[in-house]
Amino acid sequence: MNPISLILLALAMSTDAFAAAIGKGAALQRPRFIEALRTGAIFGVIEAVTPVIGWLLGQVATRFVTNWDHWIAFLLLLGLGLHMIYAGWRTGADEPEAKRVRHGFWLLAATALATSIDALAVGVGLAFVNVNIMLAAAAIGLATLTMVTLGTLLGRVLGAVVGQWAEIAGGLVLILVGATILYEHLGAG
């Protein structure tokens, strides 16, 4: 995977967490930087671990599907991208939460896990292409830490509308990354 695809993948993986962070930040009463950083760290760690788990699962399956690996990666990313776009369109109907000063760890961890399911599936897809999973996981975790920290701080100002569009843009980027993997593989073959 080339560096640009890796950066795009990391950003795409962090957009759903960014969207959730905007919602979490909007639900807080004047979120401070330390709370935003704490939220970003929780999301970043979980988002970095899940693609490694997916990659390990994919490694087991690799020997059975090597002739179709590029199609599997493309279809997984296409499906996830379309799901993110669909979810982005649906988020406009969510009701805001009551204002609080700080979110509990388990609430943040559960939200981070929910937004990282796509990273697990991407990890499975990455097992079928030549990629350094530790580098990819670190990039995804760092991008998520940054995006969630910013999203939490911006949440109060920007609200759910930007979160909706961020998730839609992330879905489009995932589809683009999947198409790039397919193009690179078919072009090399």
Rank of each mutant, 00 (worst) to 15 (best):
L150H: 01
W55Y: 15
N132I: 07
L135Q: 13
G170R: 07
L153W: 08
I133C: 08
G170L: 03
Q29V: 06
A36H: 02
I175A: 07
W89F: 15
A20C: 00
T66V: 14
G151P: 08
A110G: 13
L82I: 12
A10S: 13
Q29S: 15
M84H: 06
A169V: 15
G44Y: 02
V122Y: 02
G155L: 06
L172F: 13
L150K: 00
F33K: 00
T15G: 00
W89I: 06
A109V: 11
L172M: 14
P31T: 10
G44D: 07
A137L: 07
V129M: 07
T111I: 12
I53T: 11
L77F: 13
P96M: 03
L126M: 13
T146A: 14
N67M: 09
G151E: 08
V161Y: 02
A109F: 15
Y183Q: 09
L8M: 14
N132M: 04
D69N: 12
A127N: 10
G58P: 03
T115V: 11
R100M: 03
L113I: 06
H83T: 04
A188F: 14
A112D: 11
S5R: 09
V161G: 02
G189Y: 11
I72A: 08
K24W: 04
A48V: 13
L82C: 08
L82M: 10
D94Q: 02
H83S: 09
G163L: 05
L145F: 15
P31W: 10
W55H: 10
V157C: 00
R32L: 05
G81M: 05
H83W: 12
L28R: 11
F105C: 03
R100I: 11
A160D: 11
I34V: 15
G54A: 04
E95V: 10
L8I: 01
G88L: 04
N67K: 13
W106R: 14
V131F: 08
L150V: 15
A48Q: 07
H185F: 14
A112R: 04
I140C: 07
I22V: 12
V129S: 11
G141M: 04
T149F: 06
L28P: 06
Q164K: 13
L11E: 06
L75D: 00
M84P: 02
L78Q: 07
T146M: 05
G163N: 12
E35N: 13
T149R: 01
L120Y: 10
I34E: 12
L9M: 14
L9T: 09
D118A: 09
I7E: 00
A73L: 09
V124M: 06
T39P: 02
G159M: 00
I4E: 12
T91P: 00
G151A: 10
G54R: 07
L154R: 02
W55E: 03
I22G: 07
A143T: 03
L142M: 12
L126G: 04
S14G: 13
A41W: 05
L37S: 09
L135R: 14
M84G: 01
Q59I: 01
M13C: 13
G187R: 07
R32E: 05
L108H: 07
L172W: 08
F105T: 05
T144G: 11
W71E: 03
D94I: 02
A110W: 08
I46L: 15
T62A: 12
T152N: 06
H83M: 06
T91R: 07
L120G: 11
L153N: 04
P96N: 00
A127M: 04
V124C: 03
